[in-house]
């Protein structure tokens, strides 16, 4: 690299500035050392707080990968979170996150647990879904087929080519988003109904088709929650819509 403007960073300085490692990792938290993830509605954050409505419940696929960081971010935004490992965990979800991880491992896990069909049905029913990194791959034509995209796996290369960069994401207000790309894919092909939201080196790295959002990077590893707000906004719109429809039918 280097020709494209990248540079190695002195991690020592960075770590000092960040007070060591900006990533919320580790198995800390409750009595058994883990965060209790299936907490119900929380009054703070953006989701459902303003008008006292119940907070949405978002499932996070937890077969393998970076699911805890997504759960933390959703919690912070006031959503209830359910870790999804078996089809029964998909009941009564307002939205779903498919996190990063190893796409091969996740594909095998989805197969083993019989999760493919129920997730496809969720997508077809219009449930908002966010896939990041391996999650983007899971959504593509060759995997769950929930989105009309074709992912190129590990497209940026091995770990040595992993990077972070400021990227402009269409539809997000404010400054550029710090995208963290770990052995990341990009979108090699997409259909006409897919809106490309961001590109790196001319390759699409974020896209949206209806209420299904796919990003090749990890904003859950940063403090920037705008991508998750995008998901929760879609969830809110959909809940508002079904409430209005319900009220219409009833009255």
């Amino acid at each position: 690299m280097g020709a494209d403007g990248s540079r190695p960073t002195d991690s020592r300085t960075e770590m000092r500035e960040a007070g060591i490692g900006p990533i919320g990792s580790g198995a800390a938290g409750a009595a058994d050392g883990r965060e209790a993830l299936a907490i119900g509605p929380i009054g703070s954050g953006v989701a459902g707080a303003a008008d006292g409505r119940e907070a949405p419940t978002i499932g996070v696929l937890a077969l393998q990968g970076g699911f805890a960081a997504h759960a933390r971010m959703l919690h912070r935004l006031g959503a209830g979170v359910v870790e999804v490992r078996v089809p029964a965990d998909l009941q009564a979800l307002d939205g779903l996150v498919i996190p990063g991880g190893e796409s091969t491992t996740m594909t095998l896990g989805i197969e083993r647990e019989g999760l493919a069909e129920p997730i496809r049905r969720l997508a077809q029913a219009g449930t908002p879904i966010l896939g990041s990194c391996a999650g983007l791959i899971m959504l593509d034509r060759e995997h769950l087929g929930a989105m009309d995209i074709l992912a190129a796996r590990n497209a940026f290369g091995r770990q040595l080519r992993s990077f972070e960069a400021d990227i402009e994401v269409r539809g997000l207000d404010g400054p550029p988003l710090r995208g963290i790309f770990i052995r990341a894919p990009w979108i090699a092909e997409h259909g006409d109904t897919v809106e490309i939201l961001a590109e790196v080196d001319g390759h699409p790295v974020a896209a949206r088709q209806g209420d299904i959002i796919a990003v090749a990077f990890h904003s859950e590893l940063s403090d920037d929650d705008r991508v998750h707000r995008l998901l929760l906004a879609a969830v809110d719109r959909r809940r508002e819509h079904s409430r209005a429809a319900g009220a219409g039918a009833g009255g």
Partner: peptide
Amino acid sequence: MRDEATFTVKSGLAEMLKGGV
């Protein structure tokens, strides 16, 4: 600006291995 080999990128791969063997 594009930064490679930051601590976030290094520890980030381990984040993606979580729950795995």
